[in-house]
Design a protein around this nucleic acid. Structure first.
Length: 328
DNA sequence: AAACTGATCAACCGCGCCACA
DNA sequence: GTGTGGCGCGGTTGATCAGTT
């Protein structure tokens, strides 16, 4: 028994959208909203389209503040970094790039960025972060409770242990969280609340340029203080109206942080890790070799879910989407 | 100018998840 | 506990455009 089709395919229009259809859809949604029911929407809006098609058209092209056109170097780096960490989770990646849609990013990756990485970079730039073996025991600065120890073991077992020298470069922070302390300067000021304080997902997030001492490799660090304080004890990140659970990212993957400390919140508490040990092993870095391996392994086996080489031990739970609003 | 080839990207498809009856 | 319907996601397709021969 197969799944029932979402609409009567014989009676819906397919293919490219006409300007008239666009304006009908736009007008209807601006007036009435989606009503929480895409399937019923086309009929109400007077469109001979499948609800899914309407949804896609709206999300990818018609909703306000969609950004089209060239991707910036910064966006390239973010995409690469996230791809190396979480694989082809385009919706999550898109959540970090205001105005970009998952479809856009997916197309851009498949057509340009992947090739750029696979072919154009000189060999000297392809190995970014040298691996080191993970010390047998966590450093003294690592939280001492048992959960932290297991996290540390996972962290090591995932071969995600880098050490990197630390000259100064600048980078763009997409999450102007709280303004962190002293060791960098910011070129803009932010009045945004720390993201973990934004209970209401309709938070306006604007890119922000930080200058911050990190590595000379194109490693990326997001945000200021990586803080997780959801009430259920899980660690989540709110970005552009989406909530991404920490367990989904995997411990090592999204330490959006001030780079001198990060926050654990797996037992309901808050713990900072201070000092130098973790300063240079932040997770949002990427290694082109990793990306290349991912690309190759994905092309060999599309069904393998990014668990190659132990790098991407990401929980395959889906991103939380329910009750989510887009602030465009 | 025509034919061919490769690149791009809008749109489609099918599946998994979740809410609800 | 189970079935159903809707939503969202990632993968894929195919029309169109641009460049090359």
């Amino acid at each position: 028994m197969g799944r029932a089709p979402c609409c009567d395919k014989a009676n819906v229009k397919r293919g490219p959208w006409s300007p008239e259809e666009d304006s009908k859809l736009k007008e209807y949604i601006e007036k009435h909203g989606t009503g929480g029911n895409w399937i019923a929407l086309p009929q109400k809006a007077g469109l001979k389209r499948c609800g899914k098609s309407c949804r896609l058209r709206w999300l990818n092209y018609l909703r306000p503040n969609i950004k089209h056109g060239e991707f910036t170097d910064e966006e390239d780096r973010i995409i690469c970094s996230l791809y190396a960490n979480i694989g082809s989770r385009w919706s999550i990646i898109a959540a970090q790039l205001p105005g970009r849609t998952d479809n856009d990013i997916k197309n851009y990756w498949n057509t340009k960025l992947k090739r750029k990485l696979m072919g154009l970079l000189p060999a000297s730039h392809q190995r970014i972060a040298p691996y080191q073996s993970c010390p047998q025991n966590p450093p003294p600065s690592f939280p001492s409770h048992s959960l932290s120890s297991s996290i540390y073991r996972d962290y090591c077992n995932n071969s995600h242990y880098y050490t990197i020298p630390a000259p100064t470069v600048s980078f763009t922070c997409l999450e102007p969280i709280s303004v962190p302390s002293s060791n960098y300067t910011s070129t803009t000021t932010s009045t945004s609340l720390p993201f973990y304080q934004n209970q209401e997902p309709l938070v306006s997030v604007s890119p922000m340029q930080y200058h911050y001492p990190i590595t000379d490799s194109p490693m990326l660090v997001f945000g200021s203080e990586a803080s997780c304080s959801s009430s259920d004890g899980s660690c989540s990140q709110v970005s552009l109206g989406r909530e991404i659970k920490q367990e989904e990212m995997g411990f090592q993957n999204f330490m959006f942080g001030d780079h001198s400390k990060f926050l654990l919140n797996h037992d309901g508490g808050e713990e900072y890790v201070n000092g130098s040990f973790f300063q240079t092993q932040t997770a949002l870095d990427y290694d082109l070799e990793v990306i290349k391996q991912l690309i190759n392994s994905n092309s060999r086996n599309n069904s393998s879910n990014n668990n190659n080489n132990g790098y991407l031990s990401v929980d395959e739970n889906k991103t939380e989407e329910k009750g989510v609003y887009y602030n465009y």
